[in-house]
Design a protein around this nucleic acid. Sequence first.
DNA 1: CCTATCCGTAAGTATACGCTTACCGTTCGT
DNA 2: ACGAACGGTAAGCGTATACTTACGGATAGG
Lengths: 117, 117
Amino acid sequence: MEAYESEAWDAIGDPTRRAIMTCLAGQELAVGELADELPVSRPAVSQHLKVLKNAGLVAERTAGTRRIYRLNPAGVAALREQLETFWNRALTGYRKVAEDRNSRTRNTTDEQPKEEE
Amino acid sequence: MEAYESEAWDAIGDPTRRAIMTCLAGQELAVGELADELPVSRPAVSQHLKVLKNAGLVAERTAGTRRIYRLNPAGVAALREQLETFWNRALTGYRKVAEDRNSRTRNTTDEQPKEEE
DNA sequence: CCTATCCGTAAGTATACGCTTACCGTTCGT
DNA sequence: ACGAACGGTAAGCGTATACTTACGGATAGG
């Protein structure tokens, strides 16, 4: 999270927007189709798509009256790279902590990782 | 975003929490130290740390009156894996779209990826 | 031209959320 | 025992946000 004020990270902080991205990961979809798959109104989907588009995570094309949305791979790749950078940095920091803790008493709570799924 | 209702993804949707994680990626820190580095009050930091802890992204140990927080590598790794899975899936979907579009007329808007940093 | 479909956007609303100050329990040093 | 430092939590507050309905422009078919 180097760019911790990043629009894209803000964007995926919302569960409905993550759901939209999950739908689009499978295939491109029109707004109405997305709305059919989600428990929110179509205008809500439009608003979310606008956020995602502004964050560079999705792109659109028009087909008649329809707007077809798809993921923007570059945007998703950027997220991935940022998380990777962060992860590498965290590993370095973690090793440092482990070394420090080899030489002193500690009182540790909540050591167990909490699984996300 | 397979687990799109995931607490951890919700958690990092907030810029202050991302900032906290960035600080902790460098080294473990006490609450007060974190508060010194961020433009929010110490109780605000506590509240954010609680969210991060419940999401499995940080862990704590006590040292006297101090609570020292650090990143939880397992939690961060889980995010990374989920994003990786999502990315692979998106790539598959993207290839499918590219194939579909080779055989039909399209009208594309906003094709350019928007850089995050 | 008329009608239907699609979808962006405006406006409104409820509420979640991120912030603050205040309080109080815990720990430690004197 | 007392005071200082630390930090969790309660309570309050302002506002951003995610939702809704309504409106209207664009497109396409008859």
